[in-house]
Design a protein around this nucleic acid. Structure first.
Lengths: 122, 122
DNA sequence: TCCTCCGTTTCGATTTCCGAAGCGGTCACC
DNA sequence: GGTGACCGCTTCGGAAATCGAAACGGAGGA
C-alpha cells in the first residue's frame, strides 16, 4: 500500500521513468519532466532518496538504485498497457495528449546506452 | 505518458487496485480507499470512467472494464516490487506503514471470486 | 570579466484535496 | 405510513499540495 502512496504523488512515477536511461542532474531531470516546479522536484527527489529508490552520485547527479531499477522494471507492464490504452481510447487523432506519448515508450530497457547528458551536447 | 498523469493522481491507482476483486458501489469503494473524500472520489471515478478503465453496472456499481483489468494486471509487478521494497527499507518493524501493507498483496489475480458486497454479508 | 549552466531554496498564487454536511432515493422493518 | 440505515452524488469552506518564477552561491568557458 505505502508504495501506492509514494507513487501516487504527482511526479514520482515520472521521475522514476525519466531516470531509466541513466543518471541525470537536477535541472536536466526537471526539463525532462515537463519542466515541473523545482520545489516539488526537490520534494519528490527527497522522498525518493529517502525511500532508497534513487541515490546521488558524487557529481551530484541522481541515479536509480538497484531497488529503483527493479521498480522501473516493474513499471514496464504498465507502460506497455499505456500504449494499448492510448490506441483504444483515441485511435483516430490524439492531439490533446502529448505528442511523444505512445510512440516510443518502453524501448530503452536495461539500456545503459549512455545518455548521461553531461556538460556538452543536449 | 498520459497514463502517468492519470495514475499520478492521488487515488487513481488505489481505486484501480480496490476494484480488483469485483464491482463495488460508491460508498463501499470509498470505505475501502481509506475513506477518501467523496468529492475526490467522484472526480477520480469520472476520470477513470472517461478513460474507459472502469464502467458502471446497471445497478450503478463500478467495475473494471477489460482494459481496466489489463491495467490492474500490469500493476502486479509493481505490487510485487512493493513487497520487496518494504522488506528492504524497513526490515525490523514498519509501523508507520499501513498494517495490511505487504502481507497479502498480489494473490487475488484474475479472481472473479465474487465479493460483490451487495446488501447482506460484508 | 561576463555569461551560462548548475543545484537548491524561498515565496506568493493557484489548484487540488479533504472533511463534513446535505440532497433525494431505495429498502427493510415495525 | 413512519423511521432508520444505506445508497449515489453534490456543495462548500478550509487545509494542503503544487505551481511558477525569482534568487542564491558556485563552477566553467569565452
Amino acid at each position: 500500500m505505502a508504495a501506492l502512496d509514494l507513487f501516487g504523488r504527482r511526479w514520482s512515477l515520472r521521475i522514476l521513468w525519466e531516470l531509466r536511461a541513466g543518471p541525470l542532474g537536477f535541472r536536466p531531470l526537471q526539463k525532462r519532466c515537463d519542466d515541473m516546479s523545482s520545489s516539488v522536484m526537490r520534494q519528490r527527489l527527497t522522498e525518493l532518496l529517502d525511500a532508497q529508490v534513487i541515490h546521488q552520485l558524487p557529481d551530484s547527479r541522481y541515479e536509480l538504485t538497484p531497488l529503483g531499477q527493479e521498480a522501473r522494471h516493474a513499471l514496464n507492464p504498465l507502460a506497455r498497457w499505456a500504449e494499448r490504452w492510448a490506441a483504444t481510447i483515441d485511435p483516430q487523432g490524439a492531439d490533446h495528449i502529448d505528442d511523444q506519448s505512445a510512440s516510443r515508450v518502453s524501448h530503452p530497457d536495461t539500456v545503459g546506452d549512455g545518455a548521461p547528458e553531461r556538460g556538452s551536447a543536449d
